[in-house]
Design a protein around this nucleic acid. Structure first.
Length: 580
RNA sequence: GCACCCGUAGUGAAAUGGAUAUCACAACAGUCUUCGGAACUGUCGUUGGGGGUUCGAAUCCCUCCGGGUGCACCA
């Protein structure tokens, strides 16, 4: 439709002997200003030395002369010289029919057809709590994955996990300490659920207790050398149980990873790349070396290539690979793991933006062909009203506890429905996750989210459960229609055009925008608008009604709404239960 | 100090350079209408300050004020 209107405008202008290379056509924010709008008259008024309003009038005369297509009902000048297009009743009913004919694919586009894309996100560390920051990364990464999938890409989900480092030693110290206490009672067995606490205890001891610090450093060394039987056993056990616990969470959250990368595996790969590129001449000037020695460490002086970047240490003076080296190894390894990859997306908090730029610069010097195939998507932080949250400080809200709490609140609310216990649990979890995911995804991902427990579990208005509710309600209407044997019919439309219809056909455009910008919130905002329009339609119309000849159209519209809502929720990583 | 990000109703957010700045929560007033009240209808209220570019600025440029993050051996 967009293309047709643009051509119409172009032809009209041609008849007036005006040429415009780029015609801007947009949807007016306010539906009363039409379905499409163009500013050409305003844009060219000055260069042709005419009053924009008069010019717009003339353009409209030409458009009306050319318009043989009955999809446009009305064209008029508004404001300071906008030309507004109102689509016809028939157009909207056709778009409803289109949705009904191909519900699963409605909203998809082919902008990334044939592309292979990997998305890395979530990235929790074994032995550390999975906190709401990970929930945030997961919600965003999963949504981006689904968006690019809807745009035709083949996609691989990846998770990068820090299985080595001081945090592991801290957690193990905490566990051993805990064991000492329990030994007095003659029992000692570790519990999976204690690892998070053990980490917090260990981290606290590391900072406040010099003796503990010494012990932890020793444990760290033993972990590195792998020469202590007991430490090795605890490590293997702890690694296994935390990974299993994460897996349960992913399942609940609706994520299935294709690749897992472990930090310990990246160290050697990265180190090798660093070694290969020591003092290597790059670029027009021969004195440019990627990695060089400085104060006993091996560094990359990125500011040589870009004044906005800075020097970072890749191999420490103790000859240990730093985070940057592992990240370098990881980035390159991904291309090997997923051959033919066109784009590698990494989702992290925006604190990491500057490191990642430096690492990306190094990679682009080593592998120039990768330069345009890497994309870093950064998001803000979850903040508590009390300030910065840190897993070391222990003032974390774990993902698990949050999900449980939200689910319990919903269970209380669900008492009036007739479900088996199993169903009730399942739905409460789905609704709870929807509340959390929506509260993350409804806003632009760059900014911080001030986390307020009360608000995150709100079920009213601008919330995930509201969207699910509108879907469930539509669904029960459709059930009723089936019982009454009234079939949907997109041709039985009444003269009136409903607001929902004016929104439904825009879904594919919204998906395309959201996917090409990697910004899920456009879909979230769109869905809330559609849900509201549908609720309003629902409130003002009796949909299933034998007396009403347009009832079957209203049912068709309800189907169309439910399909769009279901697909849209899917893109946010939220399931749409038929009942709740 | 340098770099990057941000500043929109009481609160949390939205707005490919466009029209009367949108939405929810809160507050207030209604609907209690047979299909699910986790709802619907209405009222109230906002672009940090100052310049500039533009027919047109929350958006782009400059500057000031306020906040966040990052800047060499942690990840």
């Amino acid at each position: 439709m967009e293309k047709e209107i643009k051509n119409l405008i172009k032809d009209a202008l041609k008849n007036l002997n005006i040429e415009v290379s780029n015609i801007v056509l947009e949807h007016p924010e306010n539906l009363s200003n039409g379905d499409y709008s163009t500013n050409v008259a305003l844009a060219i008024a000055k260069s042709v030395e005419r009053n924009p309003k008069e010019l717009a009038e003339k353009i409209i005369v030409e458009i009306l002369r050319l318009n043989v297509d009955k999809n446009i009902e009305k064209v008029e000048v508004a404001g300071s010289g906008f030309i507004n297009f109102y689509l016809s009743r028939k157009y909207f009913s056709k778009s409803v029919e289109e949705i009904l004919n191909n519900p699963e694919n409605f909203g998809k586009n082919d902008s990334l057809e044939g592309k292979k894309i990997m998305v890395e996100y979530t990235d929790p560390n074994p032995f550390k709590p999975f906190h709401i920051g990970h929930l945030m990364s997961n919600a965003i990464g999963e949504s981006i994955s689904r968006l690019v999938e809807f745009s035709g890409a083949e996609i691989a989900r990846a998770n990068y996990q820090g299985d080595v480092g001081l945090h592991v030693a801290k957690a193990i110290y905490g566990l051993l300490d805990n064991e000492k206490l329990q030994n007095k009672n003659g029992t000692h067995n570790f519990q999976a659920g204690n690892i998070g606490q053990a980490y917090v205890a260990g981290a606290g001891a590391y900072e406040n207790n010099p003796e503990a610090k010494k012990e932890i450093d020793e444990i760290n060394k033993k972990l590195y050398d792998k020469n202590d039987q007991k430490i090795n056993e605890i490590y293997d056990w702890g690694f296994k149980v935390t990974m299993e616990a994460f897996e349960d969470l992913y399942k609940m959250l609706g994520t299935k990873f294709d690749f897992y990368f472990l930090e310990s595996m990246m160290a050697d790969i990265g180190r090798e790349i660093v070694n290969e590129n020591m003092g290597k001449a790059v670029g027009p000037e021969n004195n440019r070396r990627i990695f060089e020695e400085s104060d006993g460490a091996i560094v990359f002086k990125a500011e040589k290539y870009d004044p906005k970047l800075h020097t970072r240490v890749f191999i420490t003076s103790k000859n240990l690979p730093a985070y940057e080296t592992k990240e370098l190894g990881l980035a390159v390894e991904k291309f090997k793991t997923y051959p033919g990859m066109d784009l590698s997306i990494v989702v992290t908090a925006n604190e990491q933006m500057d490191y990642m730029r430096v690492v990306a610069k190094a990679i682009s010097l080593i592998h120039p062909d990768f330069e345009n195939k890497m994309k870093h998507v950064t998001h803000g932080m979850m903040r508590l009203t009390t300030g910065k949250m840190g897993s070391r400080k222990g003032n974390v809200i774990t993902g698990e506890s949050l999900i449980n709490e939200v689910r319990d609140t919903i269970l209380d609310k669900m008492t009036d429905r007739d479900f088996s216990n199993e169903e009730r649990e399942k739905i409460a979890t789905e609704v709870g996750i929807s509340a959390l995911k929506y509260s993350i995804l409804k806003q632009g991902i760059g900014g911080d989210i001030i986390f307020d427990f009360e608000k995150s579990i709100s079920f009213e208005g601008d919330s995930g459960p509201y969207l699910q509710y509108s879907y469930a309600r539509a669904n029960s209407i459709l059930e009723k229609a089936q019982k009454e044997n009234i079939l949907p019919d997109p041709h039985a439309f009444p003269p009136e055009i409903f607001e929902v219809e004016k929104l439904l056909y825009k879904f594919p455009e919204v998906v395309l925008r959201s996917s090409s910008l990697y910004e899920p919130h456009h879909v979230a905002n769109y869905l809330i608008e559609v849900a509201r329009a549908y609720s309003s339609f629902y409130g003002n119309n009796i949909i299933v009604n034998r007396e009403d000849p347009s009832s079957s159209y209203k049912i068709a519209l309800t189907y169309a709404f439910s399909f769009v809502m279901k697909n849209g929720l899917h893109l946010l990583g939220i399931v749409a239960p038929k009942k709740m």
